[in-house]
Protein backbone atom coordinates (compact mmCIF):
# COMPACT_ATOMS: atom_id res chain seq x y z
CA UNK A 1 0.00 0.00 0.00
CA UNK A 2 2.96 2.29 0.23
CA UNK A 3 2.39 3.57 -3.29
CA UNK A 4 -1.05 4.84 -2.33
CA UNK A 5 0.37 6.65 0.65
CA UNK A 6 3.13 8.10 -1.44
CA UNK A 7 0.73 9.23 -4.15
CA UNK A 8 -1.36 11.16 -1.63
CA UNK A 9 1.73 12.68 -0.07
CA UNK A 10 3.32 13.49 -3.42
CA UNK A 11 0.22 15.10 -4.88
CA UNK A 12 -0.34 17.21 -1.78
CA UNK A 13 3.26 18.29 -1.65
CA UNK A 14 3.29 18.93 -5.36
CA UNK A 15 0.26 21.21 -5.22
CA UNK A 16 1.71 23.21 -2.36
CA UNK A 17 5.08 23.36 -4.01
CA UNK A 18 3.49 24.59 -7.21
CA UNK A 19 1.91 27.45 -5.33
CA UNK A 20 5.21 28.56 -3.91
CA UNK A 21 7.05 27.82 -7.10
CA UNK A 22 4.81 30.48 -8.55
CA UNK A 23 5.81 32.84 -5.79
CA UNK A 24 9.46 31.98 -6.32
CA UNK A 25 9.18 32.75 -9.99
CA UNK A 26 7.53 36.08 -9.39
CA UNK A 27 10.18 37.07 -6.89
CA UNK A 28 12.92 35.91 -9.20
CA UNK A 29 11.50 37.78 -12.17
CA UNK A 30 11.10 40.90 -10.07
CA UNK A 31 14.63 40.75 -8.78
CA UNK A 32 15.98 40.25 -12.29
CA UNK A 33 14.11 43.35 -13.37
CA UNK A 34 15.34 45.34 -10.36
CA UNK A 35 11.92 45.26 -8.72
CA UNK A 36 10.79 43.78 -5.45
CA UNK A 37 7.90 41.58 -6.49
CA UNK A 38 5.11 40.77 -4.04
CA UNK A 39 5.87 42.16 -0.60
CA UNK A 40 2.58 43.20 0.90
CA UNK A 41 0.59 39.99 1.19
CA UNK A 42 2.21 38.14 4.03
CA UNK A 43 5.89 38.30 4.85
CA UNK A 44 7.81 38.81 1.60
CA UNK A 45 4.53 38.24 -0.18
CA UNK A 46 4.60 34.59 0.80
CA UNK A 47 0.82 34.42 1.03
CA UNK A 48 0.38 35.80 -2.49
CA UNK A 49 -0.37 32.41 -4.10
CA UNK A 50 -3.06 31.72 -1.50
CA UNK A 51 -4.71 35.04 -2.22
CA UNK A 52 -4.55 34.36 -5.94
CA UNK A 53 -6.13 30.97 -5.43
CA UNK A 54 -8.95 32.34 -3.26
CA UNK A 55 -9.55 35.06 -5.80
CA UNK A 56 -9.65 32.68 -8.74
CA UNK A 57 -12.14 30.46 -6.87
CA UNK A 58 -14.53 33.37 -6.46
CA UNK A 59 -14.47 34.59 -10.05
CA UNK A 60 -17.45 34.27 -12.31
CA UNK A 61 -17.23 31.29 -14.63
CA UNK A 62 -17.91 32.52 -18.13
CA UNK A 63 -18.73 30.18 -20.98
CA UNK A 64 -18.52 32.18 -24.20
CA UNK A 65 -21.72 31.93 -26.18
CA UNK A 66 -20.08 30.57 -29.29
CA UNK A 67 -17.78 28.17 -27.48
CA UNK A 68 -18.13 24.40 -27.55
CA UNK A 69 -19.18 23.91 -23.93
CA UNK A 70 -18.14 20.33 -23.29
CA UNK A 71 -14.69 20.60 -24.82
CA UNK A 72 -14.19 24.02 -23.33
CA UNK A 73 -14.80 22.72 -19.81
CA UNK A 74 -12.95 19.47 -20.28
CA UNK A 75 -9.72 20.98 -21.55
CA UNK A 76 -8.39 22.57 -18.36
CA UNK A 77 -9.26 19.51 -16.30
CA UNK A 78 -7.46 17.21 -18.70
CA UNK A 79 -4.45 19.50 -18.74
CA UNK A 80 -4.18 19.35 -14.98
CA UNK A 81 -4.76 15.58 -14.89
CA UNK A 82 -2.09 14.87 -17.47
CA UNK A 83 0.35 17.16 -15.77
CA UNK A 84 -0.17 15.47 -12.43
CA UNK A 85 -0.10 11.99 -13.95
CA UNK A 86 3.50 12.44 -15.00
CA UNK A 87 4.54 12.83 -11.37
CA UNK A 88 3.59 9.22 -10.72
CA UNK A 89 6.84 7.78 -11.94
CA UNK A 90 9.23 10.41 -10.62
CA UNK A 91 11.52 8.83 -8.01
CA UNK A 92 12.04 11.36 -5.27
CA UNK A 93 14.01 9.01 -3.09
CA UNK A 94 14.65 5.34 -2.47
CA UNK A 95 11.08 4.04 -2.54
CA UNK A 96 9.56 7.51 -2.54
CA UNK A 97 7.69 7.01 -5.76
CA UNK A 98 4.01 6.69 -6.48
CA UNK A 99 4.32 3.95 -9.09
CA UNK A 100 7.66 2.42 -9.95
CA UNK A 101 6.67 1.36 -13.43
CA UNK A 102 8.97 -0.64 -15.69
CA UNK A 103 8.16 1.80 -18.44
CA UNK A 104 8.61 4.93 -16.35
CA UNK A 105 10.35 6.97 -19.02
CA UNK A 106 7.80 5.97 -21.62
CA UNK A 107 4.98 6.95 -19.26
CA UNK A 108 6.42 10.41 -18.76
CA UNK A 109 6.97 10.97 -22.45
CA UNK A 110 3.54 9.67 -23.32
CA UNK A 111 1.75 11.94 -20.91
CA UNK A 112 3.94 14.84 -21.92
CA UNK A 113 2.85 14.16 -25.49
CA UNK A 114 -0.80 13.90 -24.49
CA UNK A 115 -0.67 17.38 -22.96
CA UNK A 116 -1.06 18.86 -26.39
CA UNK A 117 -4.52 17.38 -26.85
CA UNK A 118 -6.30 19.45 -24.19
CA UNK A 119 -4.36 22.48 -25.35
CA UNK A 120 -5.67 22.01 -28.86
CA UNK A 121 -9.13 21.29 -27.43
CA UNK A 122 -9.03 24.58 -25.59
CA UNK A 123 -7.83 26.43 -28.64
CA UNK A 124 -10.54 24.95 -30.80
CA UNK A 125 -13.42 25.09 -28.34
CA UNK A 126 -12.89 28.72 -27.33
CA UNK A 127 -14.03 29.85 -30.76
CA UNK A 128 -11.54 32.66 -30.57
CA UNK A 129 -9.07 33.28 -33.35
CA UNK A 130 -6.18 34.06 -31.07
CA UNK A 131 -6.83 30.89 -29.10
CA UNK A 132 -7.04 28.93 -32.34
CA UNK A 133 -3.74 30.30 -33.58
CA UNK A 134 -2.22 29.51 -30.19
CA UNK A 135 -3.55 25.97 -30.34
CA UNK A 136 -2.18 25.48 -33.84
CA UNK A 137 1.22 26.70 -32.79
CA UNK A 138 1.16 24.51 -29.71
CA UNK A 139 0.42 21.38 -31.71
CA UNK A 140 3.11 22.10 -34.27
CA UNK A 141 5.62 22.82 -31.58
CA UNK A 142 4.79 19.85 -29.38
CA UNK A 143 4.94 17.44 -32.30
CA UNK A 144 8.32 18.77 -33.36
CA UNK A 145 9.93 18.89 -29.95
CA UNK A 146 8.60 15.55 -28.81
CA UNK A 147 11.16 13.91 -31.10
CA UNK A 148 14.34 15.46 -29.66
CA UNK A 149 12.89 14.98 -26.19
CA UNK A 150 12.44 11.26 -26.78
CA UNK A 151 15.89 10.95 -28.33
CA UNK A 152 17.51 12.76 -25.43
CA UNK A 153 15.72 10.57 -22.90
CA UNK A 154 16.84 7.50 -24.82
CA UNK A 155 20.46 8.13 -23.88
CA UNK A 156 20.10 7.34 -20.15
CA UNK A 157 17.69 4.53 -21.01
CA UNK A 158 20.25 2.89 -23.28
CA UNK A 159 23.08 3.44 -20.84
CA UNK A 160 21.16 2.06 -17.88
CA UNK A 161 19.49 -0.61 -19.93
CA UNK A 162 16.13 0.04 -18.31
CA UNK A 163 13.11 2.23 -18.70
CA UNK A 164 12.40 2.36 -15.02
CA UNK A 165 13.31 5.67 -13.44
CA UNK A 166 14.48 3.98 -10.27
CA UNK A 167 16.81 1.71 -12.22
CA UNK A 168 18.27 4.67 -14.04
CA UNK A 169 19.01 6.40 -10.74
CA UNK A 170 20.55 3.19 -9.38
CA UNK A 171 22.74 2.98 -12.45
CA UNK A 172 23.93 6.52 -11.79
CA UNK A 173 24.59 5.71 -8.15
CA UNK A 174 26.90 2.93 -9.26
CA UNK A 175 28.64 4.86 -12.01
CA UNK A 176 28.27 8.60 -12.15
CA UNK A 177 25.71 11.16 -13.14
CA UNK A 178 24.95 10.71 -16.78
CA UNK A 179 25.40 14.43 -17.40
CA UNK A 180 28.99 14.07 -16.16
CA UNK A 181 30.03 10.67 -17.43
CA UNK A 182 30.06 9.34 -20.12
CA UNK A 183 30.48 12.98 -21.06
CA UNK A 184 30.08 12.63 -24.76
CA UNK A 185 26.55 11.43 -25.11
CA UNK A 186 25.72 12.47 -21.53
CA UNK A 187 26.21 16.20 -21.33
CA UNK A 188 24.87 17.08 -24.80
CA UNK A 189 21.92 14.80 -24.18
CA UNK A 190 21.22 16.67 -20.94
CA UNK A 191 21.32 20.02 -22.72
CA UNK A 192 19.13 18.68 -25.49
CA UNK A 193 16.69 17.41 -22.90
CA UNK A 194 16.60 20.82 -21.22
CA UNK A 195 15.98 22.62 -24.50
CA UNK A 196 13.27 20.24 -25.59
CA UNK A 197 11.52 20.34 -22.25
CA UNK A 198 11.63 24.14 -22.33
CA UNK A 199 9.75 23.83 -25.58
CA UNK A 200 7.43 21.16 -24.22
CA UNK A 201 6.39 23.26 -21.28
CA UNK A 202 6.07 26.37 -23.50
CA UNK A 203 8.75 28.39 -21.83
CA UNK A 204 10.63 31.26 -23.41
CA UNK A 205 12.37 31.22 -25.85
CA UNK A 206 9.83 28.67 -27.05
CA UNK A 207 6.64 30.14 -25.66
CA UNK A 208 5.05 31.09 -28.96
CA UNK A 209 1.75 29.28 -28.28
CA UNK A 210 0.92 31.78 -25.59
CA UNK A 211 3.00 34.66 -26.91
CA UNK A 212 0.93 37.32 -25.27
CA UNK A 213 2.40 40.17 -27.25
CA UNK A 214 0.99 38.52 -30.36
CA UNK A 215 -1.83 36.23 -29.34
CA UNK A 216 -3.18 38.00 -26.24
CA UNK A 217 -3.04 34.90 -24.04
CA UNK A 218 -2.97 32.09 -26.57
CA UNK A 219 -5.23 29.14 -25.84
CA UNK A 220 -6.31 30.42 -22.45
CA UNK A 221 -7.58 33.72 -23.86
CA UNK A 222 -11.22 32.95 -23.15
CA UNK A 223 -10.82 31.16 -19.82
CA UNK A 224 -11.83 32.76 -16.57
CA UNK A 225 -11.48 32.01 -12.90
CA UNK A 226 -10.40 28.58 -11.77
CA UNK A 227 -10.43 27.12 -15.26
CA UNK A 228 -7.68 29.50 -16.14
CA UNK A 229 -6.18 28.66 -12.75
CA UNK A 230 -5.95 25.02 -13.80
CA UNK A 231 -4.08 25.93 -16.98
CA UNK A 232 -1.82 28.16 -15.00
CA UNK A 233 -1.15 25.46 -12.43
CA UNK A 234 -0.63 22.73 -15.00
CA UNK A 235 2.01 24.87 -16.65
CA UNK A 236 3.99 25.12 -13.44
CA UNK A 237 3.50 21.47 -12.54
CA UNK A 238 4.75 20.58 -15.99
CA UNK A 239 7.84 22.68 -15.51
CA UNK A 240 8.45 21.27 -12.05
CA UNK A 241 8.04 17.71 -13.28
CA UNK A 242 10.30 18.35 -16.25
CA UNK A 243 12.94 19.60 -13.83
CA UNK A 244 12.46 16.58 -11.60
CA UNK A 245 12.75 14.17 -14.52
CA UNK A 246 15.81 15.96 -15.81
CA UNK A 247 17.32 15.60 -12.36
CA UNK A 248 16.47 11.92 -12.16
CA UNK A 249 17.59 11.01 -15.67
CA UNK A 250 20.77 13.02 -15.90
CA UNK A 251 21.78 14.37 -12.52
CA UNK A 252 21.68 11.22 -10.48
CA UNK A 253 18.30 11.66 -8.81
CA UNK A 254 18.55 11.29 -5.07
CA UNK A 255 22.21 10.30 -5.13
CA UNK A 256 24.74 12.82 -3.90
CA UNK A 257 28.15 13.07 -2.36
CA UNK A 258 27.07 13.20 1.28
CA UNK A 259 24.07 11.44 2.69
CA UNK A 260 22.08 10.56 -0.43
CA UNK A 261 18.36 11.03 -0.07
CA UNK A 262 15.26 13.01 -0.82
CA UNK A 263 16.89 16.37 -0.19
CA UNK A 264 19.34 15.93 -3.06
CA UNK A 265 16.52 15.24 -5.46
CA UNK A 266 14.61 18.29 -4.29
CA UNK A 267 17.70 20.45 -4.49
CA UNK A 268 18.47 19.36 -8.03
CA UNK A 269 14.86 19.83 -9.10
CA UNK A 270 14.83 23.30 -7.64
CA UNK A 271 18.11 24.11 -9.34
CA UNK A 272 16.76 23.12 -12.75
CA UNK A 273 13.50 24.92 -12.09
CA UNK A 274 15.30 28.15 -11.25
CA UNK A 275 17.48 27.70 -14.31
CA UNK A 276 14.43 27.41 -16.54
CA UNK A 277 12.99 30.59 -15.10
CA UNK A 278 16.22 32.52 -15.33
CA UNK A 279 16.25 31.59 -19.00
CA UNK A 280 12.64 32.63 -19.30
CA UNK A 281 13.22 36.08 -17.91
CA UNK A 282 16.38 36.61 -19.93
CA UNK A 283 15.68 35.66 -23.50
CA UNK A 284 13.40 36.96 -26.20
CA UNK A 285 11.28 34.54 -28.13
CA UNK A 286 11.76 32.85 -31.47
CA UNK A 287 9.40 33.00 -34.37
CA UNK A 288 7.34 30.00 -35.38
CA UNK A 289 9.35 29.01 -38.45
CA UNK A 290 12.70 29.55 -36.73
CA UNK A 291 11.55 27.28 -33.96
CA UNK A 292 10.66 24.53 -36.39
CA UNK A 293 13.93 24.89 -38.22
CA UNK A 294 15.83 24.62 -34.97
CA UNK A 295 13.99 21.42 -34.06
CA UNK A 296 14.25 19.58 -37.36
CA UNK A 297 17.54 20.83 -38.70
CA UNK A 298 19.60 20.83 -35.51
CA UNK A 299 18.02 19.06 -32.59
CA UNK A 300 16.66 15.92 -34.23
CA UNK A 301 19.91 14.97 -36.03
CA UNK A 302 21.82 15.78 -32.88
CA UNK A 303 19.56 13.47 -30.89
CA UNK A 304 20.06 10.66 -33.38
CA UNK A 305 23.82 11.00 -33.16
CA UNK A 306 23.67 10.98 -29.38
CA UNK A 307 21.56 7.83 -29.28
CA UNK A 308 24.05 6.14 -31.57
CA UNK A 309 26.92 7.24 -29.37
CA UNK A 310 25.18 5.88 -26.29
CA UNK A 311 24.90 2.55 -28.04
CA UNK A 312 28.59 2.68 -28.87
CA UNK A 313 29.42 3.38 -25.24
CA UNK A 314 27.32 0.46 -24.07
CA UNK A 315 28.74 -2.00 -26.58
CA UNK A 316 32.40 -1.04 -26.53
CA UNK A 317 32.79 1.25 -23.58
CA UNK A 318 32.45 -1.64 -21.18
CA UNK A 319 30.61 0.56 -18.72
Amino acid sequence: MHWLLWSVVIITVLMTTTAWALWLERKLAARMGSRLGPTMVGRHGLLQPIADLLKLLQKEDILPEAADGALFNLAPILTAVFAIATVAVVPFGEGVIAADLDIGVLWVLAFGGLMVIPVWMAGWASNNKFALLGGMRAVAQAVSYEVPLVLASMVPVILAGSMSMTDIVHYQQQHSWIALWPTLPGLPAFLLFLLASLAESNRIPFDIPEAESELVAGVSTEYTGMKFGLFYMAEYIHTLVSSAIGAALFLGGWSGPFAPGLHWMLLKTLGLFVFIYVVRWTLLRFRQDQLMRLAWVWLVPMGLVLVFMAAVVVVWGGA
Binding site: R26, R35, G37, P38, Q48, A51, D52, K55, A217
Partner: peptide, 22 residues
Protein backbone atom coordinates in the same frame (compact mmCIF):
# COMPACT_ATOMS: atom_id res chain seq x y z
CA UNK B 1 4.40 48.85 -12.88
CA UNK B 2 8.10 49.44 -13.43
CA UNK B 3 10.89 49.34 -10.94
CA UNK B 4 10.45 52.50 -8.94
CA UNK B 5 6.89 52.04 -7.73
CA UNK B 6 6.25 48.43 -8.70
CA UNK B 7 2.54 47.71 -8.44
CA UNK B 8 3.46 44.04 -8.29
CA UNK B 9 4.30 44.57 -4.62
CA UNK B 10 0.61 44.38 -3.82
CA UNK B 11 0.14 41.36 -6.02
CA UNK B 12 -1.14 42.83 -9.26
CA UNK B 13 -0.36 41.19 -12.55
CA UNK B 14 -1.25 42.90 -15.81
CA UNK B 15 -3.27 40.52 -17.96
CA UNK B 16 -3.65 40.97 -21.68
CA UNK B 17 -7.10 39.42 -21.80
CA UNK B 18 -10.11 40.84 -19.95
CA UNK B 19 -11.26 37.33 -19.09
CA UNK B 20 -8.63 36.94 -16.43
CA UNK B 21 -8.62 40.42 -14.99
CA UNK B 22 -10.25 41.86 -11.90
Amino acid sequence: SASRVDLDRMGTIPRATPRQAD
